[in-house]
Amino acid sequence: MTAEPVRADWRDTLREASDLALLGFAVAAAALPVLTLAPAVGAASAALHDRAVTGSWPPVRASLARFGRALPAGAAVSAVALAAAALLAADLLALATGRVPGGGPALALTAVVVAVLLGYAGLVAVAVGRTDGRGWRAAAHRVARSCPRHPGRWAAASGVCVPAVVLAVLVTPVAVPILGGYALAALHAVDARRPVPEPDPS
């Protein structure tokens, strides 16, 4: 006779929600120097990966060690990502205010490009979490190969990232880290349905 699986009750749901909120605040605190954004996201993604694989969060010391190891390469990734985000935001603003010709069609096309890139970036963050919070370049290449083969997963990742960015602009700033933790967890859930292949150990 097999035992029935234990069902999660409201306390488990509340605990999980609190853990994700704390994760978001930890990422926000670690990303305060700005160029530490990518290492912070990588360490958080690795923690979520551990949570999915082992059923428990990694020790704080392990996450701090991951963050420290990821700092040198992660600073460059942060700089590139922030520069790209600034350029795309400036482009959208210029189109929306009419300072750049193109009107509605150009604005819509740019918005689609931004959504596609956000979904791609979200999947890269998940892939980095599967490699101990490092290896951004290799993760970017793996996801770039995987996205055309699995457009549904790519679209779902964009569907997570776009509302998260819109809400981050609309909500009070103190709620943005909480939103970040939830969005990263949602990206891991999307990826779990059809994960990016594991890196070649060679």
Rank of each mutant, 00 (worst) to 15 (best):
R69G: 08
L93D: 14
A30E: 05
V169C: 15
G104R: 14
A44F: 02
A94H: 03
V60I: 10
R145E: 14
I178G: 05
A157T: 09
E4A: 13
V114E: 13
V196K: 04
A62C: 10
L14S: 11
V162F: 11
E4W: 13
V112I: 15
A183E: 00
A108Y: 12
G103Q: 10
L82A: 11
V171L: 14
E16V: 12
R7Q: 09
S18H: 13
S56N: 06
A96T: 14
V190L: 11
V114F: 03
W136I: 04
A3V: 13
V6R: 14
P173H: 07
G55L: 06
A28E: 05
A62E: 13
R134F: 02
A21T: 10
T131K: 05
H150N: 14
P39S: 09
A65Y: 00
A79G: 08
G152W: 05
V176Q: 06
D9S: 12
P33R: 00
A65V: 04
E16N: 11
V174L: 15
A31F: 12
G181M: 01
L22D: 03
D12Q: 12
A28P: 00
G68W: 05
E4Y: 11
R66E: 14
T110S: 15
V165S: 01
A106V: 01
A28K: 06
G133T: 06
V100P: 09
A52I: 04
F67P: 00
F25H: 09
L82V: 15
P177S: 09
A62W: 10
A65G: 13
A26L: 02
P148V: 01
V112P: 10
L93V: 12
L95M: 13
L179E: 01
L35G: 00
V166Y: 08
